[in-house]
């Protein structure tokens, strides 16, 4: 069965960090439309600082723990705790699994999603990162249940994360800073859903390349 090992797989997280840093201005611009325009700056700062402390030969789980620590201790805002708790939960899951096959990867993402739901108290449909994450993970699980292979399921995950992000355009924000806008938050993607889609598509691509 196709799988990757935890050992030496930190490059996956470095790919994610590089993608976030590369989209610094883009994420801030989207956030500025209905938020305060600091999402890209803070995300790039957190992921960039973590990347400096991670070596490609590290364990993926320890890289996730490093990133989580930086996000929780240095970034703050809403995204610090949300992504910080997500990566901590994913690292826990990965350490328990010792490696990632298709089911283990799904369980890792599920642990991350549940951590976000617990700390963030948002629901699907509130125009948050959950609207990219939750449907993407459901589609991934469904693909596996239909007997699709790991690589195909990873592609489904990426596609559905992007589709979920795009659906936030038509949503009205119900939590976070954009919620104060009510109807005026419609017509713009959610910045958190956008960064979440970047994380999931890069994870998907980077894992698939290593299978």
């Amino acid at each position: 069965m196709a799988s990757i090992r935890d050992e030496g797989a930190a490059g996956i997280l470095l790919d994610v960090a590089a993608e976030i840093v590369a989209h610094r201005a883009y994420l801030s611009e989207i956030d500025g439309l209905i938020g305060d325009g600091d999402h890209g700056v803070n995300m790039a700062k957190g992921f960039g600082r973590a990347a400096e402390q991670i070596k490609p030969e590290d364990r993926l789980s320890s890289a996730m723990r490093t990133l989580s620590g930086v996000l929780l201790a240095e970034i703050g805002g809403s995204m610090g705790p949300l992504y910080g708790m997500m990566f901590a939960a994913m690292a826990d899951s990965l350490e328990r699994a010792e490696g990632l096959d298709a089911d283990g990867f799904g369980q890792m993402l599920r642990a991350g999603l549940e951590a976000i739901e617990e700390i963030g108290q948002a629901k699907v449909g509130d125009k948050t990162l959950l609207d990219a994450f939750a449907p993407a993970l459901s589609a991934y699980d469904a693909a596996l249940a239909q007997g699709k292979d790991f690589t195909t399921a990873l592609n489904v995950l990426a596609q559905e994360a992007i589709a979920g992000r795009d659906r936030t355009v038509d949503m009205v924000a119900r939590i976070g800073r954009a919620a104060r806008l009510g109807e005026r938050s419609r017509g713009v993607p959610d910045a958190g859903a956008t960064s979440c889609a970047l994380i999931l598509t890069t994870l998907s691509r980077s894992v698939a390349r290593r299978l």
């Binding site: 700062k45 240095e74 703050g76 610090g80």
Partner: peptide
């Protein structure tokens, strides 16, 4: 004290 317009960390 947080970043500009951004909540301080839980640690702070």
């Amino acid at each position: 004290v947080g970043e500009l317009f951004s909540s301080p960390t839980a640690k702070s």
